[in-house]
């Protein structure tokens, strides 16, 4: 894709959109900014956090485009945009243990209809869910999280859509890329197909639908000294 706006074109109202990143590392900020300009509404967002400051996901929330968010850790020192919307009853929240969030998307991408997981057994987050004892241990039935779109930030892609990541900015990217009908990846560099080491490819091109190049991030990490 030539531009971010072109990359996010066609995202329909009421879509479920996966947004990568753990805090700001791996957050596809440019694609999210593009989604804000695009204006799709009533979105269901799946992301680990619920936005930082007023950039990226937080800006999308502030723009009033999100109906519901699934995440593991919405409350952070700088998540005030989400906090205000939540307290005002303007956004729905489903808190999911972080590993279940990842595994539920992995299951969606792998065609698994559901799985029994030991996480959260006996806690409020398993209330009302089906449980089963297997080999003497209790497990909770968890369902996949399927999505219409995934917005992922990575380091480098080839022109076919093979993707490599950088350090802990990889986080949810490879899993989200498998779980959406349309996966959109922003990278800092696009190289000709055939120049990436095939052994080092993390997300193979079969999972990737659109690639757009953006400049490397310049933000600082929260808590950085």
């Amino acid at each position: 894709m030539e531009s971010v706006d072109e990359a996010v074109a066609g995202i329909e109202d009421s879509s479920t959109v996966l947004i990568g990143g753990f805090g700001l590392a791996g957050m596809p900020s440019e694609l999210v900014d593009g989604l804000i300009r695009h204006g799709a509404k009533d979105l269901t967002i799946v992301s680990n956090n619920a936005g930082n400051g007023e950039v990226g996901l937080a800006a999308l929330l502030k723009a009033g485009q999100v109906r519901k968010i699934l995440c593991s850790f919405p409350r952070q020192a700088d998540s005030y945009v989400f906090d205000e919307l939540y307290r005002a009853g303007k956004i729905e929240l489903e808190v999911v243990p972080q590993g279940n969030l990842a595994e539920r998307m992995r299951a969606a991408g792998a065609g698994i209809g559901g799985f029994y997981c030991p996480t959260a057994v006996g806690t409020p987050l398993a209330e009302g869910k089906e449980t089963r004892e297997i080999d003497g241990r209790t497990y909770v039935l968890e369902y996949p999280i399927k999505a219409d779109y995934a917005l992922v930030s990575a380091y480098r892609a080839d022109t076919l859509g093979n993707v490599v990541y950088r350090k802990t900015a990889r986080n949810f990217g490879p899993v989200m890329a498998t779980a959406a009908r349309t996966t959109i990846v922003q990278v800092n560099e696009v190289v000709p197909a055939g120049t990436l080491d095939p052994e080092s490819v993390v997300t193979p091109s079969i999972y990737v639908d659109r690639i757009v190049r953006v400049d490397a991030r310049k933000y600082t990490v929260e808590g950085a000294r």
Binding site: A25, N48, L101, A102, Y165, T168, G173, V175, V221, G223
Partner: peptide
């Protein structure tokens, strides 16, 4: 490095023998 943080989102370093992998 903004691409290298810990679970508390604090910037950290990598030691010899480190390995990266995805969330699942």
């Amino acid at each position: 490095d903004p691409d290298l943080t810990n679970a508390g989102k604090v910037p950290v370093t990598e030691l010899p023998g480190a390995a990266y992998f995805h969330h699942a």
